[in-house]
Amino acid sequence: MEKDRWIDEVLNSTQHIKRTKLKRDLFPIIEERLVLRETRVFGMSKSAMMAAASVLLVINAISIYYFNAENSNLRNDGSSVLSYQEIGIIDYSGY
């Protein structure tokens, strides 16, 4: 049958296909990509570390600032400092 013969010819059309050569040398491009990748990865991790360190420093500074401010308020306003009796601990026998 002609149809089957045609299908067989199409299926066999790539038999003994020859290897084609690359039209250009890709090695310099590959090397460039590897260098870029190395640079980018190092740059990113370094900058990420710097950013993380900066954020931590800022958080620390803010915490210290508020902690100091709160402590100084307590010292100035005596009524906010509660004695053990005021908060209900009057019997020390249990301790």
Partner: peptide, 9 residues
């Protein structure tokens, strides 16, 4: 060509 580059990277 692009895939060839990807493969060697």
């Amino acid at each position: 060509e692009e895939v060839t580059q990807d493969v060697f990277v």
